[in-house]
């Protein structure tokens, strides 16, 4: 089963992907696999264990399945302050 999702890229992920968002169909079973697929496509240097993941503006779990119509953001280590 596939889901149509929008993925947001921030900070170094955006620089590497050279886009700030994209919308596509994914058949990844969970958000971890989705990131691994995108990491393979773009060559993101950050591993899953350095990131957090958010869905529709709220932190989510890596084992959550991508929901159709959702907005997914992979959150690199933050550096505010």
């Amino acid at each position: 089963m596939s889901a149509r999702v929008t993925v947001l890229y921030f900070a170094s992920l955006r620089d590497v992907a050279e886009i700030d968002h994209e919308t596509f169909e994914t058949s990844a079973p969970d958000l971890r696999v989705l990131y691994l697929e995108l990491r393979a496509r773009y060559g993101f240097p950050l591993s899953v264990d350095r990131l957090r993941v958010a869905v529709d503006g709220e932190f989510a779990r890596w084992e959550d399945a991508p929901r159709d119509g959702s907005e997914i953001a992979f959150i690199p280590p933050v550096s505010g302050g």
Partner: peptide, 28 residues
């Protein structure tokens, strides 16, 4: 301030005198 620095999704992009720039993604 400690929690904001650790939890809130804000990223710092520094520009350096040598002309390069980089995102800070600190280790935990």
């Amino acid at each position: 301030i400690d929690e904001v620095k650790q939890r809130v999704p804000i990223w710092k992009h520094e520009r350096y005198a040598q002309g390069d720039a980089d995102w800070l993604h600190p280790a935990p």
